[in-house]
């Protein structure tokens, strides 16, 4: 309950932030942090709570993004309809990937590889078929109005994103406090034991990948509306997949606020480097990579774990585990 109160308070405080922040640069930064937190939270549902490490979340993200963009550009369908359709199609892709892998009990490296391959297949397809604009990409026509989900001011984009992100965080709070969440974490920690207790691992993992795919797809829809441009490597390239997993891992896997910490940390880091060494291509990714390696080497539970151990708030079970390990 305390976590829920904290969550609501935090998002309420964020909701009024645009009243005080008038700089478009700052608003943009806050939007990018929030967007990263959404991507990361989506991954966290499947990776953090479900223990299934996907290396190809771009498959969901890109499907959401392309759905909303293609519907608008090729068929003239309203983006609000596209948002719903994007979320649904991303879930469909998630259902397909989940069904084909979890049914045969594929996990670990195999799961990482297969998600990566799916994202690659979709990237090649979107690069080859005409209705996605192939390699040239898709430009959504600029026509700002609330009905078109295009806004002149950053604040409106921010509120749209905040609403989606809030739903994602609420969902994860629910996972942390529900029967379903308990089953999901049981499957993550020991699949055989969970099955022996009557949990259906297939069903639980399917639900997790569907939710994960949904929020990743919604993040993709937002991206398309915010930047109004898409091409195959933006939508299905590896950088979205990497950002998705990096955010929760750096912040703290399987924790409610981990993705938020991770998003703040990563964006602060990349802003600082940009101001120190300039816009060198690849520089911020090098730092992301170094951060990933350092976190895994020295603090596998991410920033949340680090904060907890500094403030001495380590759960008894974890302490025992550490003493034994």
């Amino acid at each position: 309950m305390r976590q829920l109160a904290l969550l609501v308070a935090l998002f309420a405080a964020l909701a009024v932030a645009p009243i005080f922040i008038h700089s478009a640069v700052w608003m943009n930064l806050i939007i990018m942090v929030l967007y990263a937190a959404l991507l990361g939270q989506a991954w966290n549902i499947l990776g953090g709570y479900g223990g299934q490490f996907s290396f190809g979340h771009a498959a969901f993200f890109g499907t959401g993004a392309y759905t909303i963009a293609v519907l608008q550009v090729q068929l003239g369908i309203n983006p609000w309809v596209g948002l719903v359709a994007g979320g649904m199609l991303a879930m469909l892709v998630a259902a397909f990937i989940g069904f084909s892998t979890f049914r045969y009990g594929l996990k670990g490296s195999y799961f990482a590889l297969i998600t990566l391959a799916f994202a690659e297949v979709l990237r090649i397809l979107s690069n080859s078929v005409p209705f996605t604009g192939a390699g040239v990409g898709l430009l959504i026509e600029l026509n700002p109005s609330a009905a078109n989900m295009q806004f002149v001011d950053k604040a409106s984009y921010f509120w749209l994103l905040l609403a989606i992100t809030f739903i994602a965080f609420l969902t994860v709070w629910w996972i942390g406090n529900s029967r379903f969440g308990a089953q999901l974490m049981a499957v993550r920690d020991n699949e055989d034991a969970a099955r022996a207790l009557g949990v259906d691992p297939f069903k639980v993992k399917m639900s997790a990948i569907l939710l994960s795919g949904l929020f990743s797809g919604l993040a993709g829809c937002f991206y398309a509306q915010y930047f109004l441009y898409l091409d195959p490597s933006i939508a299905y390239g590896s950088s979205v997949s990497v950002e998705s997993l990096l955010v929760p891992i750096v912040g703290g896997l399987g924790t409610l606020f981990g993705p938020l910490f991770g998003a703040i940390a990563l964006h602060t880091l990349s802003e600082v480097t940009r101001s120190v060494i300039g816009d060198l291509p690849g520089a911020s990714l090098v730092l992301y990579g170094i951060l990933l390696v350092l976190v895994i080497l020295f603090s596998p539970r991410g920033l949340s774990g680090l904060i907890n151990s500094l403030t001495g708030r380590v759960p008894a079970s974890k302490k025992k585990e550490e003493n034994n390990g």
Binding site: S109, V242, I249, G282
Partner: peptide, 19 residues
């Protein structure tokens, strides 16, 4: 964790080369 560390190494090496 090993999977992730090798991914991290890949990101570092590739982007250092890009730089």
């Amino acid at each position: 964790n090993i999977l992730l560390v090798t991914l991290g190494l890949a990101i570092i090496i590739e982007n250092l080369a890009l730089m």
